[in-house]
Nucleic acid binder design. Structure first.
Length: 740
DNA sequence: ACGCGCACTTAGAATTGCTATG
DNA sequence: CATAGCAATTCTAAGTGCGCGT
């Protein structure tokens, strides 16, 4: 590794002198749009400061985040320079590859029939659980029966009955579950053979305002036409929200609102500032309030009505199986709320009519009926796609789809496949890393940029960063679309060398702020890339996601930039779990360890959330609880001592029993105290980190299932019902010895 | 070879629902 | 029984990446 001995100058020279290089190493790629540098573009930080949703002050907040980031061991450095990959390793990996279940690139294999047998034999926890459930049910039933004659209250009995029913229902559900992962896969590209559904559910029509609720313009009451009134109400409803104070939002809203007005209205209503939505706003708030205060019965009625809708529209039949639809409701009209500084915020999102909706289903199915008096835009029968209905949304002109729930075969199979691809990456990631380290020295500028980008994507789990149309969306970037202004180079910082300071807005306008020491060669390349460029210029002017992904797919079939995120997330979880959790820990500690491992991933992937509004309060509450429990513990201890004293030398059984009781009380107190303290730690560490996203999208569920089995933790401590359903395939097939 | 649009995943906020607690 | 506090669910915006037509 002589890299260090070669100066940046020398490299430049080499690049310059090399005539066979097909690319001019230093010219900014002319094909690539010169991005935001010129003129009209505001300086990045300004936008950032303003943009940040919810008036977060990004600086402070991200400092916290940064601190946390440095506390957690995120993952093994992939680049511990010279020799982080050995030939031996590579070979071995290749050998492993052939026997892994994931080895065939196309199919995640409908393996496991033998599983059944093994399960029964070993009394594995899934079956065990089921048995337990059976038992429980019986017990409950019996209890229920005899309690009729006893003094137990009827209501209690009813509750028990309901519970038993619930359990039964659960089992029923389990029996009904489509074990698609045990079936053959369809030929490539075919998503289903039969699909039948009722079409999407349309929101109810607008109800006009009562006569006594008035809109005022310039102090005078104005009776608006129905369409204008409806849109006015959208705005009025949001009045409490910060959105409505923003210039862009107000302008967009006003422009679109005026389009809905009659000619007269349009001539009258010229200035949003003269509009008084106060009464509409109040009415809306009252409505919300009454809804909240509905009686139990009313709420129940409501619930039942909703259930009926779900029952009718919420399911489809796909290849003989009833599957839940994810979003069967057409999005109601309203005002578009983009995230961050969205240029289109406040625009009117129009009402969708059946005439806008395309239906997709089987030819031989019962074609859904459009609402009375309407027609569908189109009915098609395309079994190479997974959507049941679609429409074009008017604000961004993009397509919206009605698709299946996450627990469906279609989604589950894809998910499984995703993790299998990531596991395949595991077996060749060393080689890929060696290669991009090598590419950092390439004579081709494009190759070097690719290598650096890949380094970021791998090490920091950055997103790919597709180009975006300027002015259509908020100004956010990913790896390939990073601009010079998004990074700052520090030769030394806080005692570390070659530090890159990242500061940019990523997906959903979430700020990414991180200071990372990088390989020297990466650092030098970055300097090179930034030469003669302005802040608004692309850092990687010779790279985009297509180029990058094309390269990646040549290294491994199915490999794209986002696979690195999945891979690094999952491998981090696995490694952190191994490191942090121990069999001897108690249940609460194990859970904390899991959350910490999960947290390491969330930090890696930059999954942030706004700290809950009630955070400080609830933290204080918890602390108060802890304090009072401590006092209780002290008291209990004293009482125990006292009881012991009294019992000493006295063989009165009663006294002994008292001692035992006190002992138990102390123990209980201690347990509860520990639990709360752990909870407090967990919550504090989680203040602005969202664990859900990685759990849902990045972490191979089999790691979690296997960990639960190994640690004897019940799965529902970690996955709620939705997650267990979504990952049913993993729950079912994962053995204790699973390794990602 | 490339750019664009379609299809599908990933994302945080908002809303709703549930449960422990007093 | 109300209520707070949190977890679950819903909602829909915002990404990624493929494939098709030019």
């Amino acid at each position: 590794m002589t890299e260090n001995s070669r100066s940046a100058k020398a490299m430049e020279k080499e690049l310059n002198d090399n005539p066979c290089s097909s690319e001019d190493a230093f010219a900014v790629n002319p094909k690539k749009k010169k991005s935001r540098a010129k003129g009209k573009v505001k300086p990045q930080h300004e936008g950032k400061e303003k943009t940040h949703r919810k008036m977060k002050t990004p600086k402070e907040e991200c400092m916290d985040f940064e601190e946390i980031r440095s506390q957690v061991i995120v993952k093994e450095e992939p680049d511990k320079d010279p020799d982080f990959v050995t030939e031996g390793k590579k070979r071995k990996r290749k050998a492993d590859k052939t026997d892994g279940p994931s080895s065939t690139p196309e199919a995640p294999l409908p393996k496991k029939k033998k599983k059944k047998v093994a399960e029964e034999g070993q009394g594995n926890s899934a079956t065990e659980k089921k048995k337990n459930k059976d038992k429980k049910e019986k017990v409950i039933k019996e209890e229920g029966e005899c309690s009729v004659s006893t003094k137990k209250k009827k209501t209690k009995e009813e509750i028990q009955a309901a519970r038993a029913l619930k359990i039964k229902k659960k089992e029923e559900e389990e029996k009904q579950r489509w074990r698609w992962w045990e079936e053959e896969k369809y030929e490539h590209g075919i998503k289903w053979k039969f699909l039948e559904h009722k079409g999407p559910y349309f929101p109810p029509d607008y109800q006009p305002l009562p006569d006594d609720v008035k809109f005022y313009y310039n102090g005078k009451a104005v009776k608006l036409s129905l369409p204008a009134e409806e849109v006015a109400l959208f705005f009025a409803q949001m009045l409490d929200h910060e959105y409505t104070t923003k210039e862009v939002f107000r302008n967009n809203f006003f422009r679109d609102w005026r389009k809905e007005m009659t000619l007269e209205e349009r001539q009258l209503i010229m200035d949003l500032n003269k509009c008084d939505f106060g009464e509409l706003h109040t009415m809306h708030k009252e409505k919300v309030e009454t809804r909240k205060n509905m009686s139990k019965e009313e709420k129940l009625v409501n619930k039942e009505v909703n259930q009926k809708i779900v029952e009718e529209y919420g399911f489809c039949v796909l290849d003989h199986h009833r599957e839940r639809i994810g979003n069967f409701k057409i999005e109601p009209p309203g005002l578009f709320r983009g995230r961050g500084d969205h240029p289109k915020q406040g625009m009117l999102k129009k009402k969708i009519r059946p005439e806008d909706v395309i239906i997709n289903c089987s030819k031989d199915s019962r074609i859904p009926e459009p609402p009375a008096g309407h027609r569908w835009k189109e009915v098609r029968h395309d079994n190479t796609v997974t959507w049941l209905a679609s429409w074009t949304e008017n604000v961004q002109g993009s397509c919206k789809y009605v698709m299946l729930n996450a627990n469906s075969k279609l989604k589950g199979e894809k998910d499984w496949e995703k993790y299998e691809v990531a596991r395949r990456l595991k077996s060749c990631v060393d080689a890929i890393r060696t290669q991009y380290q090598e590419d950092l020295k390439s004579k081709q500028m494009g190759t070097r940029q690719r290598a650096v980008a890949l380094y970021f994507i791998d090490k920091l789990a950055l997103r790919a960063g597709n180009e975006k149309e300027e002015g259509e969306t908020a100004d956010t970037v990913g790896c390939c679309s990073l601009r010079v202004e998004h990074i700052t180079l520090h030769d030394t910082l806080d005692g570390q060398k070659c530090v890159v300071e990242f500061d940019f807005l990523g997906k959903d306008c979430i700020r990414y702020y991180n200071k990372v020491p990088v390989a020297k060669r990466v650092f030098k390349n970055l300097k090179l890339f930034m030469e003669n460029k302005q802040g608004g210029d692309d850092l990687f002017d010779r790279l985009n996601t297509q180029v990058l992904n094309k390269h990646l797919s040549s290294l491994m079939s199915g490999l794209t930039a986002k696979v690195f995120r999945t891979y690094n997330a999952s491998i981090t979880l696995q490694q952190q779990l191994k490191e942090l959790s121990h069999m001897k820990d108690n249940a609460v500690e194990k859970l904390l360890s899991y959350n910490r491992a999960n947290r390491a991933v969330a930090i890696l992937c930059n999954h942030q959330r706004a700290p809950p509004k009630t955070f400080d309060q609830s933290m204080a509450n918890l602390q108060a609880k802890i304090d009072s429990r401590k006092e209780q513990l002290d008291l209990a201890k004293k009482e125990l001592k006292q009881a012991k004293k009294e019992a000493k030398g006295n063989s009165d059984n009663k006294l002994l029993i008292v001692v035992e009781k006190k002992k138990k009380a102390v123990q209980r107190c201690e347990e509860q105290l520990l639990k709360m303290e752990v909870q407090a730690t967990d919550r504090e560490e989680n203040k602005q980190i969202a664990l859900g996203t990685s759990k849902l999208n990045y972490l191979d569920p089999r790691i979690t299932v296997a960990w639960c089995k190994n640690m004897e933790v019940t799965l529902d401590k970690i996955y709620n019902k939705t997650l267990r359903d979504k990952f049913a395939w993993a729950v079912d097939m994962t053995e204790q010895d699973f390794v990602f």
